[in-house]
Design a protein around this nucleic acid. Structure first.
Length: 294
DNA sequence: AATACAGTCAACCGCAGGAGG
DNA sequence: GCCTCCTGCGGTTGACTGTAT
């Protein structure tokens, strides 16, 4: 291991960079014995050549047992973040308290990624997004959404093995209706099965799932094999959501306090979803203006 | 196949606030 | 009241990986 930060006297030496399994184990043991505190004593006792800050960060962001691992932000988690960010500003730690299993770092990373994406979309559609009209990548994107259990950020760096594991999240249905001018122009992802092949593109309904950390009732949905992302044929009376315009808040809603529950119910009373409220992923299904075309 | 781009994640840094002496 | 130490938070960066060209 190459020590960062140069070589001073031993007592001052602080290791930086990625944590090793051994270090994690030492840290876990410290927390088991002392609780999640006295971070600086870890170094002063010579347990680890890490700063207290580093130890705390490692515990909070990675080692805490209640953290969701390998689970993308679901569509609803995204919405919660977006709503709460509008309400609280960049108070990531506070926002994270509304999303069990998520850390402030998670929220922060999600938000910055989203901002980057939106900024790019505003700048220019870009040839990569629409390589000559209907992109064959749409199907891939949808499949990615399906696999990652929600409309959240598209997956990229997730190890392949994660998809095989039981989804750590719990799910409950959330209906979001895309505006009529949006378009789903691809064949249904293979996972969606043949039933969705006749879906009317302009009115494609996405039933997005969301992850409810620590929830209980929704867990059974996941266990019962409910698809986290389903395209529904509006002509199909059985599948079509009777009141599709409502963005239905789950109950309980990530253990939200009264304040947010009120906020959530207020949002539910507004049937029209603001464009900006939609997960950025949704933009993949929009027809982009022709101005960007050569 | 090579390359560029985009997304995700982990970790660092600086700053602010609170507690204790 | 001041100082120091510790903890927590927010911003930022870099490595890594997946995808599109």
């Amino acid at each position: 291991m190459k020590p960062y930060g140069g070589g001073r006297e031993l007592s001052a030496w602080v290791r930086k960079g990625p944590w090793t399994e051994d270090e994690d184990e030492v840290l876990r043991r410290h927390v088991m014995e002392n609780g999640p505190r006295e971070w600086s004593s870890i170094r002063s006792k010579g347990l680890l050549p890490r700063t207290g800050k580093s130890c705390r960060l490692r515990w909070v962001n990675k080692l805490r047992p209640d953290i969701k691992k390998g689970c993308k932000f679901s569509a609803d988690e995204e919405r919660v973040v977006i709503d709460l960010q509008a309400q609280f500003g960049n108070k990531w730690a506070r926002i994270a308290t509304y999303l069990s299993g998520r850390t402030d770092n998670d929220v922060k990373n999600f938000w910055s990624t989203r901002q980057k994406r939106l900024a790019r979309l505003q700048r220019a559609p870009g040839p990569r997004r629409r390589p000559g009209g209907a992109s064959s990548s749409r199907g891939n994107k949808a499949r990615t959404l399906l696999h990652t259990g929600g409309g959240g950020s598209s997956s990229s760096s997730r190890p392949a093995g994660d998809e095989q594991e039981p989804h750590p999240c719990t799910v409950a249905p959330l209906a979001i209706v895309l505006p009529t001018h949006c378009r789903y122009d691809g064949g249904a992802p293979a996972e969606l099965g043949s039933s969705s092949s006749s879906a009317t593109p302009a009115a494609a309904i996405r039933l997005l799932s969301f992850c409810c950390g620590g929830g209980n009732g929704a867990e059974s949905m996941a266990a019962s094999g409910v698809d986290p992302l389903v395209f529904v044929d509006p002509d199909d009376e059985e599948a079509f959501c009777p009141e599709p315009l409502a963005v239905v808040p789950p109950t309980p809603f990530f253990g939200l306090d009264e304040e947010y529950l009120h906020f959530g119910s207020a949002a539910a009373k507004q049937p029209d979803v603001r464009f900006d409220d939609l997960p950025p992923e949704t933009l993949d299904f929009f027809d982009l203006p022709p101005s960007g075309q050569p």
